[in-house]
Design a protein around this nucleic acid. Sequence first.
DNA 1: ACTTATTACTTTAGATCTAAACCATTTAAT
DNA 2: ATTAAATGGTTTAGATCTAAAGTAATAAGT
Lengths: 175, 175
Amino acid sequence: MGDLPLSKTDRKNKVNNPKSDYETGLSDDEQLDLRIWLRLLTCTHLIERRVRKNLRDDFDTTLPRFDVLAQIDRAPDGQPMRELSNRLMVTNGNITPLVDRLVDDNLIKRDPSTEDRRVQHVSLTSEGQNALDKMIPAHSSWVNSLMANLDRESALDLHKLLGDLKNSILKAEIE
Amino acid sequence: MGDLPLSKTDRKNKVNNPKSDYETGLSDDEQLDLRIWLRLLTCTHLIERRVRKNLRDDFDTTLPRFDVLAQIDRAPDGQPMRELSNRLMVTNGNITPLVDRLVDDNLIKRDPSTEDRRVQHVSLTSEGQNALDKMIPAHSSWVNSLMANLDRESALDLHKLLGDLKNSILKAEIE
DNA sequence: ACTTATTACTTTAGATCTAAACCATTTAAT
DNA sequence: ATTAAATGGTTTAGATCTAAAGTAATAAGT
């Protein structure tokens, strides 16, 4: 895919890079990619576990509920359910009961769209906004403290490389 | 925490870095950490979605089942349930029914430990080993293709930085 | 020996998730 | 206009997950 004569994809080709780990049958590049994937997963799990616990201990709520509230907050005028499930990257069938419960708890509200009768616009109630306003800085500080041992330059590099990775994935998804 | 005079933790201090985003009330470093966390989550979700779909389409199985099989494979002589849940970073109560189903499908087997009557050693059956041997290279190639647009140097950097992040998290967990 | 943790695993209750089927509405294509 | 396709949302079935309680066996402290 790359324009460079020595792109990684070339080097991955077993004709160009016959050295494989005999035990696994995987090339060096494949091994590296798998290790990246494992670390990605580990970091995600570790952070999620901490955030989950803190949300429960400090706010008696759950991560998916917080995620929904935080996402709704990003569109103050309300947003359709589909946008929620897209942004949160979960299936649409998952959002409905989550929103149901948050509506029951009077933290968010559903308003039918005037333009499209299929659409339900979801937005925060003042109670929901209040609750979220307390959670946002706490959540931020938790993540912050987990990354405190990463110097700023590394953090900037990591942010950039994760952006590259995301683009690589999206490019691969298209084909 | 850092030994350097201008460590990130110092700069995070609002006295030293009074510039905050007025809208969010978060410092630049906090914003950066949150963005890293978001990208981490996005990449993880995107890869998981793809792997999940491919496992279903090509092998008619699920990601948690594959994870359990792959983890069991790493300890050929069998390993206790606890080690499984530790390495897969899920609660122990989650592993039991997953293992139950895989045993029912004759892909793995449980053997009581001779040394400790509480322990159940889990290992692959030959059927399970056969199934897994087909999945491993496929899984690797999927991950590989998702990262194909990342050049090798970036991949190495990313691997290293994710290691740094992991260490930072673990250090923070201890306190 | 005896009591008290601790550990390995299971069980329970309930929330969350996926995939797939479904309904209603809107859009596109004749 | 009429049909066909796409879209937004819900529902369903079933798997996966967490947290917390429970059970049995081991380890540690006195």
